[in-house]
Computed example of a mutant assay.
Amino acid sequence: MNIIEYRKYCLSFPGAEEGFPFDEDTLVFKIKGKIFSITDVDSFELVNVKCDPVKAINLREKYPFVIPGYHMNKKHWNSIKMDHSVPEDLLKQWISDSYQLVVAKLPKKTQEELKSL
């Protein structure tokens, strides 16, 4: 997956928005103001995704390209090293899981609104 495909996939989720709230290099994807994925647009070396804490540890043990979230809460975030060994279907699943984790923490009314988009 390249940066263009990554961006397109992140924006495919209902209500997803992109921005550069930190600097001109850090591309952030949010749902209702809550981050679900981050990357550096220049290097595209890492993709940060939110993850269930137990699953996060299991993924780090299983895949050498999954590490604790860089500049993020290491308990709840993983960083995926974007080398050529990352299967696209896994990356998409982890981005989707991240989005779903964030949506699950939103108010029920907001969750219902997102379902109708």
Rank of each mutant, 00 (worst) to 15 (best):
V66I: 15
C51L: 11
K74W: 07
G69V: 04
D42I: 08
N78Y: 07
E24D: 15
F13V: 03
K34R: 10
K75C: 00
V102M: 01
T39W: 02
P87I: 12
F20N: 06
F44E: 07
K74T: 06
L27C: 12
V102H: 07
L106W: 04
D25M: 12
V86L: 02
E45G: 07
K34E: 05
H84D: 15
K75M: 02
G69P: 06
K75R: 15
Y70L: 13
K105A: 05
S12Q: 08
P64F: 01
D25N: 15
D23T: 10
S79F: 03
R7C: 09
T39V: 09
L27G: 03
Q100S: 11
K74S: 01
Q111A: 04
D23E: 07
I57K: 08
G33V: 02
P68E: 05
E112A: 11
W77H: 02
K34N: 10
I31D: 00
E88F: 14
P68Q: 12
I31M: 02
I31N: 00
L91A: 11
F44H: 14
L91N: 05
I4H: 09
A104D: 06
P64W: 07
D83E: 14
D40V: 01
M72I: 06
D23N: 15
D23K: 04
L46V: 08
I35G: 10
L101C: 08
Y63G: 12
D25Q: 12
